[in-house]
Design a protein around this nucleic acid. Structure first.
Lengths: 253, 253
DNA sequence: CGTGTTATTGACCAACATCAAACTTAGTGG
DNA sequence: CCACTAAGTTTGATGTTGGTCAATAACACG
C-alpha cells in the first residue's frame, strides 16, 4: 500500500490548504509535493491514532472528513476540531511524541501518512516550509481558543451558529462548498459532542435555527440561508482563522 | 526603559522553562540568552496586548503572573490560559499578525518585550531553537485541548480540581511552589472566568473541595492537602503538558 | 422488509446562573 | 491606630438553561 511519486495529485490539496495561510515559494512547494507518503483508507468512525500512542507518521487528509477528540473517564466524548482535505490534523506529533487526543474519520476517508522523519528533514532545509507548517499549528491553537470561548461562554444557539459559520467558511475557502451549501456527515450526535450539548438539545437548537430561517440541515446537507444573521447570532469573526488569502465577498464586512 | 545585556538574568527563567520541554544545546541557549529585549512593568489587571492589535514584540514573563483571555460580545470574559515566569504567552504573534485574544497581568508583573525580528532571526539560524520554540507553542495548544475537554464535559468540582492540578504541577516544575503550597493571586472572579462558572458557584465549589479536605485556599495561598484525591477528582493526567523533564515524585504514578 | 442508526417529542429534573444582601479583608489616608 | 472604602467572599432564595429518561418516528442499508 506504500507508494511514491514526484508530483502526486494527493499533495495538491495540501498545497492549496497551506497557500491560504502562508505564501509558499517554489522550493517550499516542491518540498511539500515531494514528501513521501503511504495511502491508507479509514472507515467511518475508525481511528487513525489514539490518545497515548506514539506515532511516527503524520496524517494528511486527502478525501473525507475527520475530527480530533478526547474523552473523560465518565465516558463522554469531546470533539476538539474538524478537519478537511489538505489539513494535517496531527502535525503536532512531530514534536509531541505522545498523542494527548485521538484522530478519527467522520466518513470513509483516504489519508496520506507522511513519516515524521521526512517532515523533519524538509523543515531542516526549508525555512519557508518551516514557517508555513508552524503557522498552521498556530492557527490550530487559535481555533481551540475560539472553541473554548464558544463552549465556555455562549448559550446553545450562539454556539451552534458559530460552529456552522466556521465550518462553512473553512469549506468555502477550500472550495468544498458550492454557493451557500455544504455537505458533511454531521449527525446530531457528532454536533452534540463538538458543542458540549446533549443530543436532545442539539435537536431543539437546530430546530430553532431552522425556524429562524438561517439554515437548513437534512441528512448531511446544510444550506446557509442567511449568512449575515447566522454570523450575527454566533458572534462570528473570522479573524481567528488567520487566513492570508482573501475571504469570499460575503464574509468580508 | 530599553536595555540590553549579554547574559542577562532575565533570560535565565526562559532557559529554565524551555529546558523542561526540550533539550537545548549550547548554541540554542546562547541564542536565547542573547535575545534583545526591553523591560516593561504591567500593573495588575493591565493588558500587554489586546485582541485586534498587531504587535511587533513578544512578551516574556519575568516576574508575576499573566493570563490570556477573550470576551464575547455579551461581555463575559473567558480566560484561556495562565502564565508564569519563563513563558512567552504571545509567541504565536510572530506568525499570526493580528491578536485573536488579549494578554493581561494578574498581578503587577515585569515582562521582557522581545522584537519579533530578533526571534525570527534566531530561528533562521538555529534549528534546535526553532524546534524548542515551536514545541512550546504546541504544548500551548495541548493545554487548550485539555481546557476544552474540561469546560465542555466536566462538572464544576472536577473542573476546578483539574485546574488546580495543572497550576500546581506547572508551578512545581518551575520551582515556584514550595512543597505542597503555591501562592497565586487567583480571586474567585478570576477562577470563575477561567472555569466558565459563576462566581457564586466557584465559591460553593471551593467550599466543597475544602470540606473534602483536598485543598486550602485563603487570599491567594493555596495548599494541596491531598494530591492523590485532587488528581483523582479532576481526572488529571499530566501527559498533555508534554514535559520532557522528570515529574516530581508525587505526580509520577 | 427487518434491523439498526438517526431524528424528534414530551415530561421531568438538576446543575448552575442570577439576584440581592451581608460580611470579611486589605488597603488608604487622616 | 482607626475610620473609611473598595474589593473580595459568603449566604440564601429563586430562576432557567440544558440534561436525562423514555418512547416514537423516520431513514438507510443490507
Amino acid at each position: 500500500m506504500a507508494e511514491r511519486a514526484d508530483r502526486p495529485p494527493e499533495m495538491q490539496t495540501l498545497l492549496k490548504s497551506m497557500g491560504l495561510l502562508h505564501a509558499l515559494d517554489d522550493t517550499a512547494r516542491d518540498a511539500l509535493a515531494n514528501l513521501p507518503f503511504r495511502i491508507a483508507v479509514v472507515e467511518s468512525g475508525g481511528d487513525v491514532v489514539r490518545e497515548g500512542q506514539r506515532p511516527n507518521e503524520s496524517c494528511l487528509v486527502i478525501d473525507g472528513f475527520m475530527c480530533r477528540y478526547k474523552h473523560s473517564l465518565s465516558g463522554s466524548r469531546q470533539i476538539l476540531s474538524f478537519h478537511f482535505p489538505g489539513d494535517i490534523p496531527d502535525l503536532q506529533s512531530i514534536y509531541l511524541a505522545r498523542m494527548d487526543h485521538s484522530l478519527s474519520a467522520l466518513s470513509r476517508s483516504r489519508v496520506a501518512l507522511i513519516p515524521h522523519e521526512a517532515i523533519l528533514d524538509a523543515i531542516r532545509t526549508n525555512p519557508t516550509l518551516t514557517s508555513g507548517l508552524w503557522k498552521s499549528t498556530l492557527v490550530d491553537a487559535a481555533m481551540f481558543r475560539a472553541w473554548l470561548l464558544n463552549v465556555g461562554s455562549k448559550p446553545a444557539t450562539q454556539r451552534m451558529a458559530h460552529l456552522f459559520c466556521e465550518i462553512f467558511l473553512r469549506m468555502r475557502m477550500l472550495g468544498l462548498a458550492e454557493g451557500d451549501t455544504f455537505v458533511l456527515p454531521l449527525t446530531q450526535v457528532v454536533l452534540a459532542e463538538a458543542l458540549a450539548l446533549s443530543v436532545v438539545h442539539v435537536n431543539r437548537t437546530l430546530q430553532e435555527l431552522r425556524r429562524e430561517g438561517v439554515i437548513t440541515a437534512r441528512s448531511g446537507h446544510f444550506v446557509i440561508k442567511d449568512w449575515q444573521r447566522l454570523r450575527h447570532i454566533g458572534e462570528f469573526d473570522p479573524a481567528y482563522l488567520h487566513y492570508s488569502a482573501d475571504l469570499p465577498e460575503f464574509a468580508r464586512n
